[in-house]
């Protein structure tokens, strides 16, 4: 169910709305941390929405970097287990690229044997998305089909019109919020909707001008033709690309505590050599180059086969964090030249 009418909310009313919502939910929004925007629990501080999309994707609120899968308590040789229920949260200001990343992960963590902790958080989280009117410099969401306009997957969608935001609902939960807090909204007029379309078209053009853009076909060709040995030679094994990618979801599991303790799940990285190494010492992907190649193949071949969506949403974060000058964006750009 999608609301057919769009509403308008002023900047001041938006703050009032968030204040009201934070009475019942944990509201997460981009705020300034160390002079840059980062998603964190909102406690009334200024929203950092004009900044570029935060480096740490809000996908971490669905797939945390580290979480307790369950606690075990031993009593005379037998165990009892406990789990924490998911938190009721609202994530404000999620961009279209991160929204699509969630959809990709849905296709993996929701498929077949569904991942309960993920599914639980997915159900208990309300997403207020923000269309991207000022895409970052290394972004190429447009060529991956993930932005700058959000298409579904949100409860509410906002577009910054300057004097305030155009608001559209994308789910029953979104409609409910609009109704329950109706006094903060006013009807949008046709000019507002035209303005939204104009701004988003402009954002798209901005990205085109920056081109040429990589496209998936070209990238696949580039994967086949790339000198992975050289790429591996330059890789400084920081794992940053995989830690920062909103689609990457590899994890490791470990126990901490005897006899009582926690089974923890933490983010892992296929860039690390220990990732696929077996206890025997045998490693199916021993070279850094092979691991980088696998990372690309997964995003542009294997994940699409499984989910019908690319494993890359063009957010450009991997290029921002790459230590080794094996910069992903230049790889993508070369893929078009």
């Amino acid at each position: 169910m999608t609301s057919t009418t769009a509403l308008f909310i002023s900047r001041e009313d938006l703050i009032h709305l968030l204040e009201e919502l934070s009475g019942t939910l944990e509201v997460v929004a981009p705020v300034l941390v160390g002079d840059e925007a980062a998603f964190a629990t909102w406690r009334g501080e200024a929203l950092a929405l004009d900044d570029k999309n935060p480096l740490a994707s809000p996908v971490e609120f669905f797939l945390p970097k580290k979480e307790v899968l369950f606690r075990y308590v031993q009593y005379s040789g037998r165990y009892t287990f406990s789990e924490d229920p998911p938190k009721a949260r609202l994530i404000f200001g999620m961009r279209p690229c991160d929204l699509l990343a969630l959809k990709v992960i849905d296709g993996i963590f929701g498929a077949d044997l569904s991942d309960l902790p993920y599914a639980g958080r997915r159900r208990s989280t309300i997403i207020v998305a923000l269309n991207c009117t000022s895409p970052g410099e290394g972004c190429f969401c447009r060529s991956m089909g993930s932005g700058p306009v959000a298409e579904g997957g949100y409860d509410l969608l906002l577009t910054d019109l300057g004097r305030g935001y155009l608001v559209e609902a994308g789910s029953p939960a979104g409609v409910y919020i609009l109704r329950a807090h109706h006094r903060h909204f006013e009807e949008a007029d046709i000019e507002d909707i035209k303005e939204k379309e104009r701004l988003l078209a402009l954002a798209g053009e901005k990205m085109i001008k920056r081109g040429p853009f990589p496209n998936p076909e070209k990238i696949r060709e580039a994967i086949d033709g790339a000198d992975w040995e050289e790429a591996g030679r330059r890789c400084l094994a920081c794992g940053g690309c995989s830690f920062v990618c909103p689609v990457c979801h590899c994890f490791s599991v470990l126990d901490q505590g005897v006899p009582d303790g926690e089974r923890l799940r933490c983010r892992d990285s296929c860039i690390l050599s220990g990732f696929s190494r077996m206890t025997s010492g045998a490693n199916p992907r021993p070279d850094p180059g092979e691991r980088l190649r696998h990372w690309y193949l997964d995003k542009f071949v294997y994940i699409p086969e499984k989910t019908g969506l690319f494993g890359c949403v063009g957010c450009g974060r991997c290029s921002r964090v790459c230590l080794g000058e094996a910069d992903r964006w230049s790889f993508f750009r070369e893929a078009t030249e």
Binding site: I108, D112, H249, C250, F251, V253, D268, P284, Y302
Partner: peptide, 18 residues
């Protein structure tokens, strides 16, 4: 035989190509 953490196709440790 591969390194595995979840057994249900999520953790990605045991991937072999696709």
């Amino acid at each position: 035989e591969r390194h595995m953490k979840c057994g249900v196709g999520k953790c990605e440790h045991c991937t072999m190509g696709r």
